[in-house]
Design a protein around this nucleic acid. Structure first.
Lengths: 170, 170
DNA sequence: CCGCTATAGTTGCTGAAGCAGCCGTTGGCC
DNA sequence: GGCCAACGGCTGCTTCAGCAACTATAGCGG
């Protein structure tokens, strides 16, 4: 076996990305867990909270997260059971329903976010001088732009606020 | 709700990392799938192939991947069923067993790796000029080093070749 | 107005992964 | 030599996500 293949700088580059991502994800997950949230639930909460009216149709929510529509159904089931979300019927289209963040859900988010930001700063952005951080982010943006739109996996797009507005708004 | 929280540069930074990672992972997974491998199986295959004798104890394999020991048991079950791996008893410690890559497993890896490297180049390393790539990797390395060692999630360490040698070598 | 097709969401089934508990083995200790 | 704590790996149980099938509604064409 060509042992040296694994020393290929391309492999190393991917390794760095994977490890940095995995390490950060683990920190995030630990903090989410302290607040009784899974990473997916946190993502759902933030997607909804940043959307107009704190709500999104199930389908749109699926498009904005790493979940399939059936996955969204289950997650919303759990979160509705926990009181973080509610389903609301769409008045203009009886097939559709909205997932809406409840006051309790917003409160939970307010409890989680400060610590989340602190963790990002402690383990990610604060690890680098401003110009090094900028270089890192520029590089990531380039890769993201190449690989991003409509990728198979969820897009986690940070600024899709107009997405819901473009759809059949109720 | 403080809508502007989501415009925080720290959130954006994480978004970039997550999206770049997710996008690349999706490309990788698609190619693995063409060769009948899951991402985890590819990881197991590479870990073993880069280890001395193309083998690793189940426990060591678990430590080097994102899996628990029970997860390793199942994955190795599947891959052994598919002929990519074999279990071999450890002569000096009858509790231990090795997972060994078969010729078929190595062949599979040889089929997958060139395309894998091509994808990395096309969507990641080739997207940036050499100095920009270096800056990106330096940044990732800093974050990785901060967050990495013994993290909760799997470590995906790219140079643990001495790991197996340090253990109770048979 | 009727029927046909597309769409929204839910549900049964399957596969994968973790945890906890189990058994067999090992290696130190008396 | 026998005993016992530690360890390696496997199995039962649970959780969770995706796929595919299903129901209900919407919207278009004849």
């Amino acid at each position: 076996m060509n042992q040296n293949v694994f020393d290929d700088p391309r492999i190393t580059a991917v390794g760095l990305l994977v490890e940095a991502y995995a390490g950060l994800s683990a920190r995030f997950a630990a903090q989410f867990d302290e607040h009784g949230l899974s990473p997916v639930e946190f993502e759902v909460l933030t997607r909804l909270a940043r959307s107009p009216g704190n709500q999104l149709r199930m389908t749109d929510l699926a498009a904005q997260t790493s979940l399939s529509t059936s996955g969204v159904t289950r997650v919303v089931d759990r979160m509705e059971r926990d009181g973080l979300l509610t389903r609301r019927a769409c008045p203009s289209d009886r097939r559709s329903s909205y997932a809406v963040v409840t006051a309790s859900g917003l409160k939970r988010l307010d409890e989680v976010l400060p610590g989340h930001l602190r963790i990002i700063e402690e383990w990610f952005t604060g690890q680098l001088e401003p110009e090094a951080l900028k270089a890192l982010l520029d590089g990531l943006r380039r890769v993201r732009d190449a690989v991003h739109p409509g990728a198979t996996a969820g897009s986690t797009d940070p600024l899709p606020t107009e997405h819901a507005a473009s759809g059949s708004r109720c």
